[in-house]
Amino acid sequence: MIELDGVHFSRGAQVIFDGVDMHFGRGEVTVVLGPSGTGKTTLLRLIGGQVRPASGRVMVDGIEVARARRKALYALRRRMGVLFQNGALFTDLTVGENVAFPLRAHSRLDEALIRRIVLFKLEAVGLRSARDKYPAALSGGMARRAALARAMALDPEIMLYDEPFAGQDPVSMGVLLRLIRRLNDALGLTSIVVTHDVKEAMSIADRVIVIAGGRVIGQGTPEEVRAQREQEPALAQFLDGAADGPLNAAEDESPLSADLGLGGGQ
């Protein structure tokens, strides 16, 4: 369904993807793992066509995103639901209006029907009672779930979740996990879940992709990825959450005190 071929992407001097190949299968839940700042959000932006790769191709359902004409791109985006890392709710609309927004923008449904759909989506994320609140009056976890309801409003074929579990208590996290899995299976979606919660995410994943340092360090079913940890110390470190290993070495290349601004001699 979604295919990355030799994708290079950099921000200024910082190389974020250095020729990565990835594959996200139709109807599967793929979990993308990786340390903070490796480019997981950037990956979702590449797929959504908000940034273009320097070289290589990003294909979504046979369409090359970076080359798509404006109309085709917007049509494609309509088929994707995105849950942003910060929620990105429209702050001047209530929760209910936020969820109704995509429906109003893209369909000619009458108000009564829109209301029913909105209530149904909010029910699914456990926020029916919060529909008249403004985003500023929600907790972080609630805002994320409200954003999820909005992302699902148009019944997209592809769901991209950027850290859906951050700030969730164990109960709502369990609810979300089940929701992601159930939605995927019931509606035949293709889901990409970006997260740090290794164990929980692995439990619902069909496939797992681990990225670090601009490349893919592990890819496959959860079992396969667990099996690859022998060859890849960085992978083992990430999956076990160990404090020491190749992952922090890369970050600490520059001397600490250079960042502290203590370079000059006394």
């Binding site: 917007y74 910060n86 990105a88 893209h106 148009l154």
Partner: peptide, 14 residues
């Protein structure tokens, strides 16, 4: 900054 513009795009609205 709040990614609302990105959200708009992702909903398919320019």
């Amino acid at each position: 900054i709040t990614e609302e513009i990105d959200a708009l795009r992702s909903i398919g609205i320019s």
